[in-house]
């Protein structure tokens, strides 16, 4: 049994859309080479701004552009790129954070995004702080109006945050909710320090490269609070760089979906629900299923 396997493509991910590049980082003078689900791709932009994504082997693919990102589907899309209603609100244009390579399985990256218990340590001084590390009870439920595979929503999440966003001048108890809309697409809604009646929205899309390597594409839909896009990007890059060493040191690299592999507590409700949901929809990529674990030597 190996960390990654040359296997039949996972049908769920093969027939879904994944970001492979951001328009703002493409350069007419230089092709962008990347890999999606083991398939090498090249993305080019010409002087007129036309973007073309191609497989290196010339096989066809589907391509579109949303939210400043170039999306590719290698198979037959079963649904469109996920809809983000907030992206249509004129005062919060999407800000692409950048493509961040991480040597971790896509599902591990998503699970980390949903995790409340690490905020006070991994993101100490920003998204949490010792000793206010208690994870208050929150709820997790199936996501209504989700895509073809369903999804999850975690509500009533609260965390004391010293610096919840670049505009925060003091710590406050931040209200959150999270959605998992696709196996490798998640988002959170959190209080904005200036607009207390609306939420900043942060998406995380994970481009699956191999089963144990990924490229994270965070996308920000933040309310105008005086923060420049560059400052928003820098803040999120700091946050992600704090997570990266954790993600790259989780073993096994693939997310175990079988009972007893890892020991969750009540604060891990989101993570438990995410793993169960992945098992229920039959995701095979970047995970260790119960069937596979049962056949392993130990």
């Amino acid at each position: 049994m190996q960390e990654w396997r040359t296997m039949t493509p996972d049908p769920i991910l093969w027939n879904d859309w994944h970001p492979v590049a951001a328009r703002c980082t493409l350069d007419p003078g230089r092709a962008h080479h990347t890999v999606l689900l083991h398939v090498p791709l090249v993305v080019t932009i010409d002087a007129a701004g036309t973007i073309i994504a191609r497989r290196n082997d010339g096989a066809p693919l589907q391509q579109c552009e949303r939210y400043g990102l170039v999306w590719v589907c290698l198979g037959t899309p079963v649904q469109p790129v996920l809809a983000i209603p907030e992206a249509d609100e004129p005062d919060r244009p999407p800000v692409v954070v950048g493509a961040i390579g991480v040597r971790a399985a896509g599902p591990r990256v998503i699970e980390n995004f949903l995790d409340l218990g690490h905020l006070g340590y991994v993101h100490a001084g920003y998204l949490g702080d010792d000793p206010q590390t208690r994870v208050l009870p929150y709820d997790v439920a199936p996501l209504p109006d989700a895509g073809v595979h369903g999804g999850l929503i975690a509500t009533r999440c609260r965390m004391y945050q010293p610096k919840a966003s670049p505009a925060a001048t003091e710590g406050f108890l931040v209200d959150y909710f999270y959605k998992v809309e696709r196996p490798l697409a998640t988002c959170l809604y959190k209080d904005n320090p200036v607009h207390r009646d609306r939420f900043d929205v942060i998406y995380l899309f994970v481009q699956p490269v191999t089963e144990v390597t990924s490229i994270a594409h965070p996308l920000l839909l933040c309310l105008p609070d005086g923060t420049t896009p560059a400052a928003l990007r820098a803040f999120q890059q700091i946050i992600f760089m704090q997570d990266k060493p954790i993600l790259e040191n989780q073993r096994p690299a693939r997310l175990p979906l079988y009972d007893g592999a890892e020991l969750p507590i009540g604060a891990d409700r989101s993570s438990v629900a995410y793993r169960r949901w992945l098992a229920a929809i039959g995701l095979r990529w970047g995970v260790i299923t119960a069937t596979e674990a049962a056949g392993a030597p130990r």
Partner: peptide, 13 residues
């Protein structure tokens, strides 16, 4: 054409 070396450490020994 990939960005990464996939690595090949088994999960189970």
């Amino acid at each position: 054409g990939g960005t990464f070396d996939a690595g090949a450490r088994p999960d189970f020994w």
